[in-house]
Design a protein around this nucleic acid. Structure first.
Length: 413
RNA sequence: GCGGACGUAGCUCAGCUGGUAGAGCUCUCGGUUGUGGUCCGAGCGGUCGCGGGUUCGAGUCCCGUCGUUCGCCCCA
């Protein structure tokens, strides 16, 4: 009856206590930065109507074509575990008539997302993202603010040496027209291109810009650039975003080849990359999506936002987000378990993080354990209570629980 | 969906051209009849991923399978 070994499904992982502490700390720091920028917490369901993603993210994207976890509920409705966050936020914005609120509506989210892909370093089937959306205004300060916010969050998370790539895609029609023009160009020079670039002329012509293949690179010298074909409004908007970033002292590379995987982007797009990540180098990115809300059945509403991968932030970070050990350990030396329990309880009620011996160890074992946990002091409960400073090794009796609490409160500042 | 690498103790790994399972770390105890950080000793801990084949004999060779991982596509 002993079936096969049970284990976490492919592409998923358990967050063990050591990592849990780092995630919690990242969450805390992210919330602090986001709050300062005026973004408020927002939650949407983990699964939505499949239609939402098909219409919002785009039928032609890889995400919708082959990466969604889709299932039917008992009523035969098609539901999908959310592969990204923006569509759900926009749906909620429309559903709750949030266009009647003072604009822009600025929100942030944190939670699990799902894509049915092959896992690799920094890429999982269930992963977590933190992200923002600012809906209801196309003001370029929102674009710049989004980017600065993400930069600051990464800094606070200990992610250094990031590169910011920035571009503008213009409006949907202008971009479509440009892509047709680029496809035409590529077909004319087809013989000079590498095989995989040729294979992707239809699906992803922008890919041709960052090919290593020498012939392709040479051919691409003369290729039309999207940034040269922006409508005047869009070009002006992009110039303003850049001026704001320059004013803030944030450096970036304008990269006309920046491709984002979702159909809804317009105007500003950006991505932060870290060289510490391996093949999947993007830590977080986003952009403007001025047509999405309307496409989902709401009023014409501009929006801008980004998402960053929690696992990738942790992977690219300096690993200094660890937890903090409890400063006091209550040890039991032959004596009274009830007295030890009461002392630990009194310390905890006074706000002191306290560990209590609960495994039947020898006193020697208890002290070794307390030391490895990083305790600053150990209260040894025997005939009476002794207070041992773990740094100096000094030890003296305390008269009662109240005195122990008084000493301990100073340790857990 | 496609390619490569790898599956031996909780973790990191060793195990030569097949001969009946090892180390380090962790954990527990002891050396110190109530005292940590170093040291020494002992103990706990393994269907060698799973199934089949070759062989007197398989962790080791062969086939299959499952899993993990890195990469491609693409993306956080």
């Amino acid at each position: 009856m002993a079936g096969r070994k049970l284990q976490a499904p492919r592409g998923t992982f358990d967050v063990l206590p050591d990592d849990g502490a780092a995630r919690r700390e990242l969450y805390r720091r992210a919330g602090s930065v986001l709050g300062r920028y005026g973004y408020r917490p927002f939650e949407t369901p983990v699964f939505e109507d499949t239609d939402l993603f098909a219409r919002g993210v785009g039928e032609s994207t890889d995400i919708v074509r082959k990466e969604m976890f889709t299932f039917e509920d008992r009523g035969g409705r098609s539901l999908t575990l959310r592969p990204e966050g923006t569509a759900g936020v926009c749906r909620a914005y429309v559903e709750h008539g949030m266009h009647k609120l003072p604009q822009p509506v600025k929100v942030w989210y944190w939670g699990p997302f799902f894509r049915h892909e092959r896992a690799q370093a920094g890429r999982y089937r269930q992963f977590s993202q933190v992200g923002t959306e600012a809906l209801g205004s196309d003001d370029p300060t929102l674009d710049a603010e989004s980017i600065l916010l993400l930069a600051e969050l990464l800094e606070a998370a200990g992610v250094r040496e990031v590169r910011l790539r920035l571009a503008s895609l213009g409006g949907i029609e202008a971009r479509a027209a440009y892509l047709d023009r680029l496809r035409g160009f590529l077909r004319e020079r087809e013989g000079e291109l590498s095989e995989d670039v040729r294979d992707r002329i239809d699906s992803n012509p922008l890919r041709a810009f960052d090919a290593d293949h020498p012939g392709t690179r040479a051919a691409m010298e003369g290729a039309p650039r999207l940034l040269d074909h922006l409508a005047p409004d869009d070009a002006e908007h992009f110039a303003e975003v850049r001026a704001l970033l320059d004013g803030a002292g944030l450096s970036y590379d304008v990269d006309p080849t920046l491709v984002r995987g979702l159909d809804y982007y317009t105007r500003t797009v950006f991505e932060f990359e870290s060289a510490r990540l391996g093949a999947q180098s993007g830590v977080g990115g986003g952009g403007r999506y001025d047509g999405l809300v309307e496409q989902l059945g709401g009023p014409a509403t501009p929006g801008v936002g980004w998402a960053a991968g929690i696992e990738r932030i942790l992977l690219a970070g300096d690993g200094k987000l660890g937890g903090f050990p409890a400063p006091v350990y209550v040890a039991l030396a032959g004596g009274d378990r009830r007295a030890a329990f009461a002392l630990a309880t009194a310390l905890r009620e006074a706000g002191v993080r306290t560990e209590l011996e609960q495994a039947g160890r020898s006193l020697k074992g208890q002290l070794k354990h307390a030391d490895r946990l990083g305790a600053k002091a150990v209260a040894i409960v025997g005939e009476e209570i002794e207070w041992k400073d773990m740094a100096t090794g000094e030890q003296r009796p305390v008269n009662n629980v109240a005195e122990a609490v008084r000493i301990a409160v100073g340790l857990d500042a």
